[in-house]
C-alpha cells in the first residue's frame, strides 16, 4: 500500500510541479573575490614553500659550516704532522732509517747564481740564505 501511496504522492508532486517554472537566479561569478582569495591562497602556499625551502637551506648551511670547521681542523692537524715530518730531527732519523748517507754540500760543490739586478736594488743579504714566496708560506 505504501508503494502505491508513494507513487501517487510523487505523481501528484510532479503533476503539481509540471507547469511550474523553475525559479532560478543566475548570479555572475564574484571575480574579484575569487581573485583575491586565490592570491591569498597562492601567497600562503608560496610562503609555506619558501619557508620550508629556507629551513632546508638553513640546515644545509649548518651542515656546511660544521664541515668547514672539521676540514679546517683536519688541515691544521695535517700541517702539524707535515711540519713534524720535515723537521730536522725527523729528517735525520728518516735518512738514517733508509741508509741514506746525505750531508750538506761542500763549498766547491755549490754554485752561486746571483741576480745582480735584485742585489743592486738593495734587497739585502737575506737573499743569500732563502727566498720565500707566498705559495710557500701557504697563503693566497
Amino acid at each position: 500500500m505504501s508503494r502505491k501511496k508513494t507513487q501517487s504522492k510523487t505523481r501528484r508532486r510532479s503533476s503539481s510541479n509540471r507547469n511550474r517554472k523553475l525559479k532560478a537566479e543566475a548570479r555572475p561569478l564574484p571575480t574579484r573575490s575569487v581573485l583575491v582569495c586565490s592570491s591569498i591562497v597562492c601567497m600562503a602556499l608560496a610562503y609555506l614553500w619558501l619557508s620550508s625551502r629556507t629551513e632546508a637551506l638553513a640546515q644545509q648551511i649548518k651542515v656546511e659550516e660544521n664541515a668547514l670547521t672539521d676540514l679546517r681542523r683536519d688541515v691544521a692537524a695535517e700541517e702539524v704532522r707535515w711540519n713534524d715530518m720535515i723537521g730536522p730531527r725527523n729528517l735525520k732519523l728518516a735518512l738514517k732509517e733508509n741508509n741514506l748517507n746525505m750531508d750538506w754540500p761542500k763549498p766547491e760543490q755549490v754554485l752561486h747564481i746571483r741576480d745582480m739586478a735584485l742585489w743592486e736594488s738593495g734587497r739585502g743579504n737575506l737573499n743569500h740564505y732563502s727566498s720565500v714566496d707566498d705559495r710557500e708560506r701557504g697563503r693566497h
Binding site: 691544521a76 692537524a77 700541517e79 702539524v80 711540519n83 737575506l126 732563502s130
Partner: peptide, 13 residues
C-alpha cells in the same frame, strides 16, 4: 714561522 716558512708554532684542534 722560520725564515724559510717552516712552521714553528701553530694552533691544532
Amino acid at each position: 714561522l722560520d725564515r724559510n716558512g717552516h712552521t714553528l708554532a701553530q694552533d691544532e684542534g
